[in-house]
Design a protein around this nucleic acid. Structure first.
Lengths: 264, 264
DNA sequence: TGGTCCAACTGGTAGGACCAGTTGGTCTAC
DNA sequence: GTAGACCAACTGGTCCTACCAGTTGGACCA
């Protein structure tokens, strides 16, 4: 028999590397949420280690991970810096993004044809594995409490559908707007009005896909996406990045606190 | 003043972390190329360290990086395993592109919902300027003789529609597959069978947009794109890049252009 | 045969040490 | 006074040793 990938026990990746995982998530959260501004120099490895009560080894591994995620940039002899990435790690489209400065309404408008088509194909073509991936992402969103984690799970669900569509081109297109989607989801997932009754969300969409009901899946995806048109209100015609920045400030305002500036 | 991100000298990230970088690249290559099969258990950290003549620290940082790239999975007490890539959601465009290797058929399949939506919006929203840009691109294609120039004009026409749609998100998505589209157009525009009678091309699409006939414009765009499904024949299920390479070689005549591939 | 148990192995974490760049301030020479 | 040399402090890169907690498989006993 062939060696099999560890079945990644349910608790597996959660329990694993407790310390490293925790610190990585914390830093990742602070960076993604904008709490640590772009361009800021992080404390030195030794300092971070002391701050988190961990060894320098652990901190270095965390930094390596963040670096692989393009969240930071590490310069020997100088330090680590938060990297620009909010909406673009892809190449050429940065300029486009900045030039266009899409609004929430435009993002929704563009996602509809793309994601409806994706879900159509996915409903026809999804394998058991694809279904499992979607289920996992759905559960991940349900059980998450942190906004960033929620947004990640949200992204994963939509990406899982892209994978299931068996069309890499669709997935590339989806990923090209991933940054914007993420920013939008940061807000969506902290908005109570998304609980609006009768609106189909991941579970309902997933259900339709699993039942292989193409029309239902498409309809639910469309409704799911259109919900934003009703709930975003005044933010609908605000640039996505602007809205994200404002929203993050609001979130931080509620939990305010530390914000340690490393003055020395 | 705000601290600025280090200007990341060209050689910067190349010179940095020589050892870690080297080992990471080597392992990454071996995994991506399939030299190390999926599911395989990597040697233990201590073993890898000895093998590469590096310390365990370095190896661990490399593994952390590969893990962040979803290339491997690390299980405490058991070891590290090469992870299935297709179903894993890798972030980043190249990973997507390389993993997916879209075919011509998939490219067409994905362009249809995107471009039909674009043309729908463009027909409703295009300004006089937008119309002028489209007209220019149409004329450019008509008058061009060189294949490359033709392909460029072709791209311009579709991009002009994207601009006219007044939705920068759609344009970003279009641009994210621009490379593939260009490769495909290199061939389309040197194929005599595109002259097939009754098939709407740029002039007909442009005409419908100018006449503000939404349904007609959508229908013509759809037909225009679907033409490829009939004319590409055997190439339909060939990877776009592969097809482009083959086709370009044909174009260049068989004598020349032995592309030097750096074997190591 | 079936279960227990232990030894070997694996990754996770700690903490120390040294090197080679980078940086900013001091001190010297002009 | 200023330009330049120079040095000390700091930063990341690498190595090493040690110990812990799971995992695994085989030896051993009931």
């Amino acid at each position: 028999m062939q060696p099999s990938v560890p079945s990644s026990s349910p608790s597996g990746s959660a329990r694993r590397g407790l310390l490293t995982e925790r610190i990585a998530r914390e830093l990742e959260h602070d960076i993604r949420s904008g709490e640590i501004a772009v361009g800021t120099k992080l404390p030195s490895e030794r300092e971070l280690a002391a701050q988190f009560g961990a060894s320098r080894n652990v901190v270095r591994e965390v930094l390596r991970r963040l670096e692989a995620q393009h969240l930071i940039e590490v310069a020997p002899g100088r330090g680590s810096f938060v990297r620009e990435q909010s909406s673009g790690q892809a190449r050429g489209y940065d300029a486009l993004y900045r030039a266009g400065r899409p609004t929430v309404r435009q993002l929704i408008e563009a996602r509809i044809p793309l994601e409806v088509e994706m879900v159509r194909l996915a409903t026809e073509r999804a394998t058991e594995e694809d279904i499992a991936a979607m289920r996992a992402a759905r559960d991940g969103l349900e059980s998450a409490t942190d906004v960033v984690v929620k947004a990640q799970a949200d992204m994963e669900f939509h990406d899982a559908i892209a994978v299931a569509s068996k069309n890499p081109v669709l997935r590339i297109m989806l990923s090209s707007i991933g940054g914007m989607m993420f920013e939008m989801m940061l807000r969506s997932n902290s908005d109570p009005s998304i609980g609006e009754p009768g609106v189909p969300h991941h579970p309902e969409i997933f259900e339709a896909i699993e039942a292989r009901d193409v029309d239902l899946a498409c309809a639910r995806m469309r409704e799911h996406l259109m919900l934003g048109l009703r709930t975003y209100g005044a933010d609908l015609d605000v640039q996505v990045d602007t809205m994200a920045r404002n929203h993050i400030e609001t979130l931080l305002g509620q939990t305010e606190g530390r914000r340690t500036s490393a003055g020395r």
